[in-house]
Simulated assay, not measured.
Amino acid sequence: MVASKYVLTFINRSDENLTDAKVQQLILKIVAHIPSDIQTDFTTLKRLGDRAVDQYMTTSEPIDKDMLQGVSHHVDLILQHDDEYRQDKKLFVFDMDSTLIYQEVIELIASYAKVEPQVKAITDRAMNNEIDFKESLRERVSLLKGLTIDTIYEEVKGKLQITKGVPELCKFLHTKGIKLAVLSGGFVPFAQYIQEQLGLDYMKANVLETDSEGKLTGKVTGEIVDGEIKAETILTLADKWSIPLETIMMVGDGGNDLPAMGVAGFGIAWNAKPKVQAEAPCQLNTNSLLDALYILGYTDEEINHHLL
């Protein structure tokens, strides 16, 4: 049987250095988690930075990330096939709320209608994949009925906080000629604003319906951007830009991002709900989304060079 080649990336969730001794401790735990009938050979160790290390390995049979569950609660372990697609990315697709920005926009809007707790409760259930996204969006938008949205658009935009590391990540990816897109279950004006701030190549989001007086009707007009639409949009963009699916990365935090991760070459659950982390191809739980570049195998030296 042909050996399976993998690269296992260790990323310390804190700002502390990831020592060689700590890496060796984790490798011993990993060996204990992999079934004994699978022969594992740890080969080259490559340091990406003070907090991140690549460990190359081969196994006698294929393995998956579920075999690494519980190895560490302080270091993210990202398992990938050691192939040309790891760094050869053509398209990065992002969720917006709680990914590119820290907030959930609908909760910011809900504060004006004094229904933020009710909306947040529904949002949490949707992001944890406990309720259908379309149903959750309709329930949340219905609570906003009667708001004069034009008067609060600019105020809400002013409250949006871009996630740490995102501007630098987008700048780096642009220098590599990689296209960037945001597919949001949020709303067009805010997704357009983030698109402009980050220079993204494509945007898709939901449209809030208003009446003749400019007040929200409590409904969404047009198709709802849920998990299925995100996945379909990735397929459409791949065809439009002649991009192999294997070269696409999807980054998100909610259950409605999982279908898109499923069609993309790889996916990152960014500080996501436990159920999403369990189902996503990998998880990243640090305080900077720039750390996604470690998952692609870039070193601190390479990252800093392109950001100068």
Rank of each mutant, 00 (worst) to 15 (best):
K5N: 10
G254W: 00
D132V: 03
G262P: 01
A21P: 07
E228F: 05
K179A: 03
T44C: 07
E116Y: 03
V105R: 00
T175Q: 08
I152L: 09
Q39L: 13
S4Y: 15
L308F: 09
P35N: 11
R13I: 11
F266W: 09
P259G: 02
K145Y: 04
N256L: 02
K89N: 01
T175Y: 04
E16L: 11
L160D: 08
Y112D: 02
G297E: 09
V182T: 10
E223S: 15
M96H: 08
Y298V: 00
T19Y: 08
T286W: 11
E116V: 03
N287G: 14
K215S: 14
H306A: 08
P62V: 03
Q87C: 11
F94Q: 04
I149N: 14
K114P: 01
E130F: 06
I243G: 00
D291K: 04
N285D: 12
T163E: 06
P167T: 11
H174V: 02
L307M: 11
Q80R: 13
R86D: 04
T217R: 09
D211T: 09
I224Y: 05
E213F: 12
E301A: 09
L308K: 13
W241E: 00
T236C: 10
G214P: 11
K204S: 06
V220P: 02
L200H: 06
S111A: 12
L216D: 07
V2D: 12
G199F: 05
K90C: 04
N256E: 04
T43R: 13
T299E: 04
H305R: 12
A126E: 01
L173E: 02
V23S: 07
Q55D: 07
E154P: 04
K171R: 14
Y153E: 10
E155Y: 12
H81G: 07
L183Q: 11
L289P: 00
Y112N: 00
T221F: 14
Q39R: 11
P167Y: 10
L289W: 06
H73R: 13
V7M: 09
S142I: 01
V263K: 05
D82P: 04
G186A: 10
T19G: 05
L307N: 09
L289G: 01
Y298R: 00
A238L: 03
M57S: 02
Y6H: 05
Y6A: 03
M96D: 03
L308S: 12
K159M: 15
L173A: 12
K114F: 01
V75W: 08
R140A: 02
V188K: 14
A264C: 06
K219Q: 14
G227I: 01
I101S: 04
K22T: 11
A191T: 14
D300W: 05
S184C: 09
L293C: 02
D66M: 11
S184T: 08
D88I: 06
P244C: 02
L200C: 05
K273G: 00
I101Q: 02
A280E: 02
N285H: 13
D15A: 13
I34C: 03
L26H: 06
L144F: 07
I234Q: 02
D82E: 12
R47Q: 12
K90T: 04
I122C: 00
A21Q: 14
E223C: 15
T123I: 05
I194Q: 06
V156K: 07
V166Q: 08
D37T: 12
T148G: 13
D66A: 11
L284H: 11
K164G: 02
E104K: 03
R125E: 06
K114S: 08
